[in-house]
Design a protein around this nucleic acid. Structure first.
Lengths: 244, 244
DNA sequence: AGTAATTTGTTCGTATGTATA
DNA sequence: ATATACATACGAACAAATTAC
């Protein structure tokens, strides 16, 4: 048998009213940590459990809630964002240390690949040039923060993989290949929903947002040494570009 | 009566398989514009219509699909991103014109407000200082691209509202107040889900992502003239920071 | 250690509302 | 006005993960 879509029919769907009700609870502090179970919410709002779930889905998409099967639905704590100053000298690890944070880099994968035209243009080499591709994960304070893919010309940096694996630092690995210093030539920023692969490594739900940074680092002569594409978890990161 | 969750029970839910199937159609070009109706999809995948809807909801959250009531479900066309070079001289309108794009600014609201401590710190003034707050909408090629909120010290820029309303340009409005030139001191970038208010003006669904830019513009003496918070639609915009 | 209870996740069924063609 | 197509809503059952006893 059917039923009215709205109780008081003001043109607003029931799941939206439930969502607004929950949002209100969060605002006024009635809920600080965990939501009541779905069945209880359904009873309290006088709607079906599916209607509650629709509301929770919307609030989850907003980033307000997080559901865990078998445990319950919780408020998403908002931690202050980590700041990454991206100037001419972009040094991720150094920046973290300056904020008294403990960074750790982890090498996920290293491969030898042929340069696609898009990457070749960035590294100022011909398409098909052998490159080293490094997949890295940055962990700060024990929490995954970003995943990055970087490319180096294999001929110029033959041992970049082992050098990075040993030192855990791109700066140090480059130094071993005679690059005493390098600087950021260009950083291009976009944002998008996280990919399935990144979500796995960054240990987050698939509705997370990432800040995508496509950058070129060059040596002192201005020759490209590294093309790097980094996906930062957007709710944990703030990129700062300041005039020098 | 109950039913198996999985046909071949490989631990993957049916709606995920439906979603993967649709994604596959998009990849191989079987679908270029519009999806078959939900009931037909349900029949084709051998699942309930709700299961199809769950899959479509996931693909919508990914930004791949867009459903329109009464019409159908469509592929979201991916337009190339508009590039905005944010250097020391960040001039939005000029950048658009250089890309042969036609920018239009629209003043949504202008108010006199008292400086909150966060804004006061940016503008280098005391909390409570009277400010002009301008809410603007940037439209490029007829499509809303960004919404921004900017603050000016009212005493120094008494006629900024009318000046902007007349000229449609912040640069020109500042010039009328004796600021012949200004430069970007700092730009802080984050990304988040769009707010309900912004979604309305930017004419997009509430699951859109925005690139948030918090910036300070200063005059030639280095004194702050404008604090500006801009929300760019992330799938239409790429911010470029290049070394000078 | 093991079982039961709790809680979220998935799936189907059915009916009706609302916008578009 | 009718048909089509997506949106909302309730009901029932089972699955899967976690927690409590």
């Amino acid at each position: 048998m059917g039923q009215r879509v709205n109780g008081t029919d003001d043109g607003i769907s029931r799941w939206r009213r439930v969502a607004d009700g929950i949002r209100e609870w969060v605002r006024d502090g009635s809920i600080t940590d965990q939501l009541p179970p779905e069945v209880e919410l359904a009873a309290r709002f006088g709607v079906n459990r599916h209607t509650v779930r629709r509301a929770i889905a919307a609030l989850t998409a907003e980033g307000l809630l997080r559901a865990e099967r078998g445990r319950g639905t919780f408020l998403n704590a908002v931690a202050p964002r980590i700041i990454y100053p991206v100037g001419e000298r972009a040094r991720f690890s150094e920046s973290m240390v300056q904020q008294s944070l403990e960074p750790r880099g982890r090498l996920i994968k290293a491969e030898r690949v042929a340069a696609k035209s898009s990457v070749a243009a960035l590294l100022d080499c011909r398409p098909g040039t052998p490159l080293h591709r490094l997949e890295r994960l940055a962990v700060v304070e024990g929490m995954p923060l970003s995943r990055s893919t970087s490319y180096f010309v294999a001929e110029r940096f033959p041992d970049i993989i082992s050098a990075y694996a040993e030192t855990g630092s791109v700066t140090e690995a480059l130094r071993r290949h005679g690059v005493t210093d390098y600087r950021r030539r260009e950083t291009r920023i976009t944002a998008t929903r996280i990919s399935a692969g990144d979500a796995e490594y960054l240990n987050c739900t698939s509705d997370s947002i990432v800040l995508v940074s496509n950058a070129i680092d060059v040596d002192l002569e201005g020759k490209p040494v590294q093309a790097i594409r980094t996906r930062f978890l957007a709710d944990r990161m703030e990129l700062v570009f300041a005039a020098s």
